[in-house]
Design a protein around this nucleic acid. Sequence first.
RNA 1: GGCUCCAUAGCUCAAUAGGAUAGAGCAACGGUUUUCUAAACCGUAGGUUCCAGGUUCGAGCCCUGGUGGAGUCACCA
Length: 606
Amino acid sequence: MKDITKEIESAAAEAVKEIYQVELSPGDFLVTSTKKEHKGDYTLVTFAVSKMLHQAPHQIAAAIGAYMQQNRSWVISTEVVQGFLNISLSTDYWTSVMDEIKAHPDFWKPAQAKEKVLVEFASPNTNKPLHLGHIRNILLGWSTYKILSACGHDVHRVQIVNDRGIAICKSMLAWQQFGEGATPQTTETKSDHFVGDWYVRFEKEFSAEYKAWQQTKEGQERFESLKSEDKPEAEFFKGYKNFYFNAHSSLGRQARELLLKWEDHDAETLALWRKMNGWVYEGFNETYKNLGVEFDKLYFESDTYLLGKDLIEDGIKREVFYKKDDGSVWVDLTAYGLDHKLLLRSDGTSVYMTQDLGTAQKRYEEFDAQRMVYVVADEQNYHFQALFAIMAKLGAPYANGLYHLSYGMVDLPEGKMKSREGTVIDADDLMADVIEEARVAATDREMTDSEVIRRIGMAALKFFIVKVDPRKRMTFDPKASVDLQGQTGPYIQNAYVRIQSILRRAGDERKSYEGYALNEDEKLLLNLLGQCRHIIENAAKDYSPALVANYAFALAKEYHRYYHDIKVLQAESEVAKEFRLVLINTIANILENTMDLLGIEMPERM
RNA sequence: GGCUCCAUAGCUCAAUAGGAUAGAGCAACGGUUUUCUAAACCGUAGGUUCCAGGUUCGAGCCCUGGUGGAGUCACCA
């Protein structure tokens, strides 16, 4: 596909050379789409070159405009507004764009690159079911995978599952003590929710235990000896909770014992751990399936938590890291504007950072990846800065290819989601809700196809989340997320469905549209279609699926308007009809393809 | 408190690389249907882009200072 923007730039450079005898590169010019309120298709902005040419912007624009009209057959007319040269292109040019699009079905894809890329996303803990925050993470990860793939990259999807630690031990303990052999089957509970319920049960029992302890002689003595002047008793105990868990609590002690046994490879504990995590994975897989995502490889923290020690040893030898007297190992990142970070505890055990270093190394060896993208919430910005700085310090060959796709947390209209206050929105419930809402709306329209209804509901949910710039915190309004009108997924689906309906009636036989003089709306649509590859390119560069989402919406909106104003099947002429059929078919393809990049499926009818 | 990020219409979000009169959707109000399915279209109203300076032909965007909010600052993950 030829790039009209570049052609305008080079024509402008040629004009300047001819008129002013000044050598400028095409990149010195800025070309944009002409604003709707002005006549023209593309606009050349001349302010920037005004100084170099020692002339007022509007004079330069006029001169270049005259030159281009003379020397470029595709320029039909020009108009100068201040330093803006608005260029109208000929019908022949626009027809040739349609020809090219028709001849190249892949015209919407960016120039094909071929790097090996790893995208890590989802990365749940195994003690609780997935929630709204995970959904944002998963949708971002998935569309990042899709967008990079569309750019030609060889992309692998991975996640790290946090399957070990004190949290899952809490679920295990509660089930052991109070479960009486209950299973997801006997209680008819989705299995990850089942495990999550035992985690909640543990917290409940623990709170009760803690509360009782506060009234004991020991608890009161603690309070008396540690309290500060103005802190009320309730507040004191709130802050003391974690310490209580580690120092006094019977349940806390038992949970820690389970963790120790686990680390000791105690057979019975491992069996219980496997059983409960197995339930969790079964549930997660169902959720992933409903979200329409899958992974190439899962890493389990239970396998990776000891990794990275070799790298540390190597780093100490090369004096990239240093050892303190107590035996702990540190790295000095002050040169990167960061801090000193701990890499090994004084007892020689590893920390989160150690594990992440080891996992990155392992992935690099396994996949030979040139780029690794971590989709992780922005609360971990500092951690990833440190991680990448350490990689750079170590001189890892993949250090330059590491990227933290840091996204903002999801808030509710009432504020933050808090598990303690029960305001966390569960992923499974949410999907069920949006589909139910779609069902209600569909029933009004006498639509009963459940697959169509599912696609509509999921489109509403996914689009609502993915249309927002990932880096920004977003507010999730459950009511707005099930909206099916306006700036929504179903709105875009509807544009596609309207086209399919026309195409079904049109039949398969296509004739020539040669000689058709297209109207302004059609130029606008072609212009939009031509932007697709740049949008995807930018989305890949910025790791922002929101750009694709907003583009798809803009195209759908433009099409809905077109649909309203212009008849296709009863067009004024045969060539008009033929041209429009090709045009709308292309629009449908682009809508389908861009929505696919967001993980959203199109229905054929709705 | 240090560091980082954010602040745009009543609400949720856009705004190419610093480009023209800051745009959409929702909510409100008013219109459009014997239709290629109205999950649509058109219109009205709604803005000191948090504040004060600066840079420049031009600033929502860049710089300085401030205000407000979020995150982070563990031998947690």
